[in-house]
């Protein structure tokens, strides 16, 4: 597979170092730095939480938890393990997915199966998202995946489903889903030109 080159547009790498520098200041209790971090990450955080939870009120609540966690745990951010944005987005995605799973635990199994039938995470996202440059690029990269790769990746990420649920939903073996999530993400990584 030939990786597609990233477009010569702002891909957040300038922000990347800026955000990391700011997070180090936040770790020392710098509130002014935190306000700047807030302005850089609040929209990505709220966006991802909203896609997963699909309920604005709950999403606002979870986004608040995530942003306060960024303040609280800033000293635990380690730039040698990944970018600042990835650290923040991992917290956001985990909180949102955990909230969905906690809610699901109380839902009876049939309802859950019904939800699996009607919920098409990627289509839902595509219909509701703002058409930004970054979304356009992501969409183009997603369309370079096989159908099964794309579904495996987006059901897990935007739908908050476990790989077992994704396998059940797409009616494919567990091992296949695991493999498709991995090779799908690898292809996305190369297409987006993610720094490694």
């Amino acid at each position: 597979m030939r990786p597609r080159r990233a477009l010569p547009v702002d891909d957040g790498r300038h922000d990347r170092h800026e955000l990391e520098k700011l997070l180090r200041q936040v770790a020392l209790g710098d509130r002014v730095a935190f306000e700047r971090v807030y302005d850089m990450v609040a929209a990505p955080v709220y966006g991802v939480v909203l896609r997963v939870l699909r309920d604005p009120a709950q999403s606002e609540e979870v986004a608040q938890e995530v942003l306060v966690e960024v303040w609280r745990a800033a000293a635990r951010f380690d730039a040698s393990r990944g970018s600042g944005m990835s650290w923040v987005m991992t917290i956001a995605h985990h909180r949102a997915v955990d909230r969905v799973r906690a809610a699901q635990a109380s839902t009876v199994r049939e309802d859950r199966a019904a939800r699996l039938e009607v919920h098409r995470p990627y289509d839902d996202v595509a219909e509701s998202v703002e058409a930004t440059l970054e979304w356009e690029r992501l969409r183009r990269c997603l369309s370079g995946l096989t159908e099964l790769q794309r579904q495996s990746v987006t059901y897990a990420y935007y739908g908050g489903y476990t790989y077992r649920e994704v396998a059940e939903l797409l009616k494919v073996p567990l091992a296949t889903v695991k493999t498709r999530m991995r090779d799908g993400l690898i292809r996305m990584r190369d297409c987006l030109g993610v720094e490694r």
Partner: peptide, 16 residues
């Protein structure tokens, strides 16, 4: 891959 997953998230940013 985690960096890549984060891009799936930042691409769907929305002003709170």
């Amino acid at each position: 891959l985690r960096e890549t997953a984060a891009r799936l998230g930042s691409a769907v940013a929305q002003e709170p």
